[in-house]
Amino acid sequence: MFTVKRGRLAAIAAVAVGAVVALAGCASGDPLERGSTTSGDSKTLVVGSQDYYSNEIVAEIYAQALEANGVTVDRQFRIGQREVYLPDITGGKIDVFPEYTGSLLQALDKEAAGGTADETYAELVTALPSGLRVLDQAAATDQNSWTVTEAFAKKYNLTDIASLKNVTEPITVGGNSELETRPYGPAALKEKYGIETVGFKPVEDGGGPLTVKALVDGDIQLANIYTASPNIKSDNLVALTDPDGVFFPDNVVPVVSKKVDDTAAAVLNKVSAALSAEDLVSLNSESVNDQKSAKAIAAGWLKQANLF
């Protein structure tokens, strides 16, 4: 009789656990929704970053600059792709986030026109939902680019994206799996220039060493490598120029929430004014080649920039 009771209890427990699991699945559609982040008192700002080492360095620079001016900073780095963190920013869970003008604009408005860096910036300002704003953009850019090896470029006399028409052998594209469906992906190549790519090989390291190696080895002919990547120089790669703006200009710009007041904004604008494109490349190089931490790299740059 005792065992029957125990057995029944176990059965009820199992059903209860099962029910909880099932109900959890019935909850709101985003399974990756994270719990709310309490930011403590009003002087604490949450600084976030993408899961991209270069973005993390910029975020760390923002964080240290703010701290040098008396702001308490709560770091939430490596959150993930845009699909994941944008709701966090609009929801007020993150206060400062380094973004890239063009990519952010295209994510918010698929039909955006783009253009020069200033045109893109202006469009972005209007495209942002209420509760979000961007501060001044920096001169530093970290552009998406279609990149090939130097030898490949020489072989077919490649300069800009349109010149890919000269290529007589099949072109395989490689990159993160989301590249396949991005508005500036292989579809854009076909639509705008009539360039047919023959296949897509997923390499999920975001333009990192595996992608570079695949390009160098000839497993892929075309890859999306960020223009601030130190690999472009060190591995003899060529980023094809983009006169038609297939890729929108991607200037580094801080996206901020309502909590960021004028003093904090002024700090961040000072940083943006000092951050040049060459600076970004060397910051990235310090991470990739010298294996320094984001903290050390940011501290080093702030020191030599001597802003505060």
Binding site: G29, P31, Q81, E83, S177, E178, T181, P202, E204
Partner: peptide, 12 residues
């Protein structure tokens, strides 16, 4: 491929 693609493009 479905896992990575779905994850990266938020196609859960």
């Amino acid at each position: 491929r479905y896992l990575f693609s779905g994850l990266k493009t938020r196609d859960y």
